[in-house]
Structure formats: structure tokens, C-alpha cells
């Protein structure tokens, strides 16, 4: 889902940086207001970002090929507002170390991956509305939904951006076909991410619910 360098016009890249800058500034302010000492949260956020970075290098087989996990949904679920700076850092390192996603596209990618992460957090938060006996299956289902939605929204944003800004002189029907194809290609990824997030959430609920913001047993 990471958009590489060279495809989108520099105006879009600039808008991406503006958008990412605004969201990052907002999230840093939220963090400062929520945590008495935000610096104390740095090791935890960094180690978790590193885990996400590593996990996103994991190939999951999707015949005939395989995909990299993005884990935007899981990051949103576990990190909340810290997901924004974490995703920004993660994307920067992915671009710098592996050319996974472009440097000029850092802002754009941060928006299409970071904002859905926040959405995933809100979707997952709905589990507080569930009755106690549905807590476990409900958490798994919401985790799946949250991750799938994060991928779907991100893929839709990427597809729209590419189709509408690549100078291709395509007619309307071809544009629709191209958007649809790009979206369809991400459905398997969305399903896998949803399953992985649900399984990780179930694991964390049993082993360390504090990581999900739930009271420790």
C-alpha cells in the first residue's frame, strides 16, 4: 500500500507533507496532554514501532505471490495517538532502509496509513459497548473489522490518488476500472491483516491486556 517515488505530482507530495505535519502536530499535543511525561513513553513506543517495522517485513503467502503486512490497524489499536508518530517513524525507516514507500511520498503515505490507524482505534474502542459475555468474540470481531477497514480506507485513498493524478489520459470507464482493480488487489491483504490483528488481540487479551488499555488481571 506504500506509494513509491516518482508517480504522483509534487503538488500531491506537498499536500501530503502538509497533512501529515498537521496530524503529527495534533497527535503530539494530544500525547503531551494525556501523559504527564511523554518522554517516558518513548521507549515503549519505540520498541513497539520496531516490532511493527519488523513484522511488516514478514511475508504472508497470498497465492500466487506474497504480501508484506502493513499492520496499520494493529498499531492504531495498541498505540492510539502514539500510532501517528510511530507510523511516521516506521515509514521513514522503511523508505530509508528498504525503499519501501518513497521518501517524497512520506507525507502521503503517513496520511493514508496513519489516519486509518486512528480510525481502527475508534472502531476497536466500540468493544466497551459489548456485554461482558461477548467481550472475547466481540473483541476479535472488532479487531478484524478495525484492521480490514484501515486497509480498505488506505487502499481506496491510494487508488483514488493514483488514478486521478497520474497523467494518463484515461477515459472515465478506464479510470473506474483501474480504481476497482487496485482496490480488489488489496482485499486479500485486508482479510489477512484482519485475521492477524484479531489473533494478536486475542493473544494480548490473555497475556497482557494492559497493552490494549484494559485493566490487568
Amino acid at each position: 500500500m506504500h506509494i513509491p517515488d516518482g508517480i504522483l505530482p509534487v503538488s500531491v507530495a506537498a499536500a501530503g507533507f502538509a497533512g501529515a505535519g498537521a496530524v503529527t502536530w495534533l497527535s503530539l499535543r494530544r500525547i503531551e496532554r494525556t501523559y504527564p511525561d511523554p518522554r517516558a513513553g518513548v521507549p515503549r513506543a519505540s520498541l513497539l514501532t520496531a516490532v511493527f517495522f519488523m513484522a511488516s517485513l514478514v511475508h504472508v503467502p497470498v497465492p500466487p505471490a506474497s504480501v508484506h503486512l502493513v499492520l496499520s490497524g494493529l498499531m492504531g489499536v495498541v498505540l492510539g495517538w502514539f500510532a501517528i508518530p510511530a507510523i511516521l517513524v516506521g515509514l521513514f525507516l522503511q523508505a530509508v532502509m528498504f525503499q519501501h514507500g518513497g521518501l517524497t511520498m512520506l507525507g502521503v503515505n503517513a496520511c493514508i496509513i496513519g489516519l486509518p490507524a486512528l480510525l481502527a482505534n475508534r472502531v476497536f474502542a466500540l468493544r466497551r459497548l459489548l456485554p461482558a459475555r461477548l467481550a472475547t468474540p466481540g473483541s476479535a470481531a472488532l479487531a478484524f473489522l478495525a484492521s480490514f477497514a484501515a486497509i480498505a480506507v488506505g487502499a481506496a485513498a491510494a487508488a483514488l490518488l493514483i488514478v486521478s493524478t497520474v497523467p494518463a489520459h484515461l477515459d472515465a470507464a478506464a479510470e473506474r476500472a483501474a480504481t476497482f482493480t487496485l482496490l480488489a488487489a488489496h482485499v486479500p491483504l485486508g482479510v489477512i491483516e484482519g485475521v492477524v490483528t484479531a489473533l494478536v488481540v486475542l493473544f494480548l487479551r490473555r497475556v497482557d491486556p494492559g497493552l490494549l488499555g484494559e485493566p490487568r488481571r
Binding site: 515503549r44 513497539l48 516490532v51 492477524v196 497482557d208
Partner: peptide, 17 residues
């Protein structure tokens, strides 16, 4: 894979403190 990711998250979290 999910188990390994979860284990790494938990260990990293505790190590972070």
C-alpha cells in the same frame, strides 16, 4: 506468526520499562 508478533510485543513492552 500472530503468536510470535504478540510475544515480541509483550516482551518489548516489559523490557521498555
Amino acid at each position: 506468526t500472530a503468536h510470535i508478533i504478540g510475544s515480541l510485543l509483550v516482551r518489548s513492552n516489559w523490557q521498555a520499562e
